[in-house]
Design a protein around this nucleic acid. Structure first.
Length: 598
DNA sequence: CTAGGGTTAG
């Protein structure tokens, strides 16, 4: 065989092979192309999607970008954002001509992964590739900024869109910006934006209204929420849906306005809107927060009867309810039964149970569950760690708390204000005020340093340890900073003075708080009265009791028994008994021997 | 072939 013949043979052979394979490809491709859409719509798991992508990317000619976009959409719908991003990158790599659709999906994925920065980088790619970014892309970016709590940047982007005419904001743009404002508690600006969009002829829809209604409900401003609800319904003719109703019911339940909540439930049923899992969960949670687990269980039974399946949120609330009542065996039973139902407890579920064990002083069980959760690959977060820290401090295990605090850092979970409050309070209640103070100064966090609750904890801790000088300095310090002491702050400071026998200072502050527009409450009076009695400083006692009566306050058992002791010992005049009798709450009379003496 | 609102823990 000569060289030419060889080449020809090779060529023939190759041609044969090629035609064979292209024939196969052709049939395959044809079926792939006709079926790909129906295939994509059936995708429920990531593996199918990845396999299909693999097949598509080896098909020649390449399927259209539309098919790829459909696949990306499917992967995004099942919330596998990082896989979706990977696929997008592969699309670019194999030369699929990505378009604005692919881009907006990729950007959305970045944003949902808390990587809005990367989203903006992709926006840059759009410009380089001459893909003109449309409103969908900007909406995804705006949503990402809101998700990451970058409200200022979100506002800047929003304004830039309008000023530089980058795109015409649509109802989604406005609604997203409104959501961001609401997230930061700025209902006023959110409402202003609602009015602005109307002016600009962009009609708010049910999402826009529901976003603000929900925010008002969360802020317990039910009147405003209902006002907006009525405006939506009667002026705009937009019918509420299950989400709108769920927000309103949530708001009412949180305020204990059960009658109105059930009225609203009935109203939605009359309108043929069925409550769904989230609606039921709101009810379950509200009952549980009041310790009414029987009612919560009844709601769960109703939801099951009506074909809704309770989820981990449902059971997490229920666990919380049982924990609140100290019924830890029952709480654990619910937790274990979740697994049997095929529900996997998550960090929140674990944290609720851990909190229950901690609050009920079963730190051993809490520790064991904590290890179990990490063993299952669940990462404890700042809430979980804070819960455990609180539990350890509660039983006085400061050294272990310290270890866990270090572990928390090592695991990359940064303590937040709540963690610091727990640690500072834990140290104080374990008589380690010095450590608490040095930690407080060490942190130097501006928000923590301007937190009146933290100051109150420290003043209380110092006072209880007999370090009234430190307490006084802290109190002066917060005043100098322009912070407003609340009734608890005043009360712990007064308590500190009383404990050291500094009745003069205690009374001065007592007068000052009232003048400052912070009237003393029940507890303040009791603290001051106990201080007076313990320090044999009885001149003002009658006057204080009289004031309490005028204000409709009452005495607690310990203050009352202190009075009785003093009267019995002849340190106080018996004529005081009549006044004291007026200040005894009925509950005390019912269940104690104190009723013998009036 | 793309977007936005409601439920759980310290």
């Amino acid at each position: 065989m000569n060289r030419t013949a060889f080449i020809k043979f090779r060529g023939t052979n190759s041609f044969l092979l090629h035609s064979l394979s292209s024939f196969q490809f052709a049939t395959h491709t044809a079926s792939l192309h006709s079926n790909v859409s129906s295939f994509i719509h059936k995708i429920t798991n990531l593996n199918d999607a990845l396999n299909l992508f693999d097949e598509m990317s080896h098909t020649r000619p390449l399927p259209s970008v539309v098919k790829f976009n459909q696949l990306l959409t499917a992967v995004t719908k099942i919330k596998h954002f990082s896989s979706s991003l990977d696929l997008f990158k592969q699309m670019c790599a194999i030369g699929v001509p990505v378009d604005k659709y692919s881009m907006s999906i990729a950007i959305k994925c970045c944003c949902q992964l808390y990587r809005t920065k990367d989203g903006f980088a992709l926006l840059g790619c759009c410009f380089r590739r001459a893909i003109s970014p449309h409103v969908y892309i900007y909406n995804a970016l705006l949503d990402g900024l809101v998700l990451e709590d970058k409200i200022l940047e979100a506002e800047m982007l929003f304004k830039k869109l309008i000023k530089q005419n980058l795109c015409e904001p649509d109802v989604v743009t406005y609604s997203t910006m409104i959501k961001g404002l609401c997230k930061f508690g700025n209902n006023v600006t959110a409402l202003a934006l609602l009015r602005l969009m109307e002016q600009k002829n962009c009609k708010p829809d049910i999402v826009t209204y529901s976003t603000i209604i929900d925010s008002l409900c969360k802020d317990k401003m039910m009147d405003d929420a209902f006002k907006l609800f009525k405006e939506m319904l009667f002026e705009k003719g937009i019918l509420p849906d299950v989400i709108t109703y769920t927000s309103l019911i949530h708001g009412l339940c949180n305020l204990g306005r059960w009658d109105e909540a059930s009225k609203l439930l009935k109203q939605m049923e009359d309108e043929n809107i069925s409550p769904n899992v989230k609606t039921f969960n709101v009810l379950v949670d509200a009952f549980c927060k009041e310790g009414k687990v029987e009612e919560a269980e009844a709601v769960i039974n109703i939801m099951i009867e009506r074909g809704e399946v309770p989820n981990i949120v449902t059971y997490s609330s229920l666990i919380d309810g049982y924990c609140l009542r100290g019924e830890m065996i029952k709480a654990r039973e619910i937790f274990d039964s979740m697994t049997l139902r095929g529900l996997v407890p998550d960090v929140v579920t674990y944290s609720s149970l851990l909190n229950g064990y901690c609050k009920n002083r079963n730190i051993e069980e809490a520790m064991q569950m904590f290890r179990q959760m990490t063993g299952q690959g669940l990462k404890p977060n700042v809430v979980t760690y804070s819960t455990m820290l609180q539990g350890l401090f509660r039983v006085g295990r400061c050294v272990d708390a310290r270890k866990l605090f270090d572990e928390m850092y090592a695991q990359g979970q940064n303590p937040n204000e709540c963690t610091y409050r727990i640690v500072l309070e834990g140290l104080c209640s374990n008589r380690q005020v010095e450590d608490a103070l040095s930690l407080f100064h060490l942190i130097g966090d501006s928000r923590l340093n301007s937190d009146i609750v933290v100051y109150t904890i420290l003043i209380d801790g110092a006072g209880k340890c007999g370090k009234v000088d430190i307490a006084r300095v802290l109190f002066q310090g917060l005043i100098d900073k322009g912070l407003q002491p609340n009734v608890r702050t005043y009360t712990v400071m007064i308590s500190g003075f009383c404990q050291e026998g500094l009745l003069g200072e205690a009374k001065l502050l007592f007068l000052k708080m009232d003048e400052s527009g912070c009237p003393p409450d029940n507890v303040t009076y009791r603290v001051l009265l106990q201080g007076c009695l313990k320090n044999q400083h009885c001149d003002d006692v009658v006057m204080l009791l009289q004031e309490m009566d005028d204000r409709g306050y009452s005495l607690d058992a310990s203050t009352l028994s202190l009075f009785i002791d003093h009267i019995a010992a002849g340190l106080l005049d018996r004529s005081m008994l009549k006044l004291l009798g007026k200040l005894v709450p009925k509950e005390l009379l019912d269940d104690s021997s104190l009723c013998d003496w009036e």
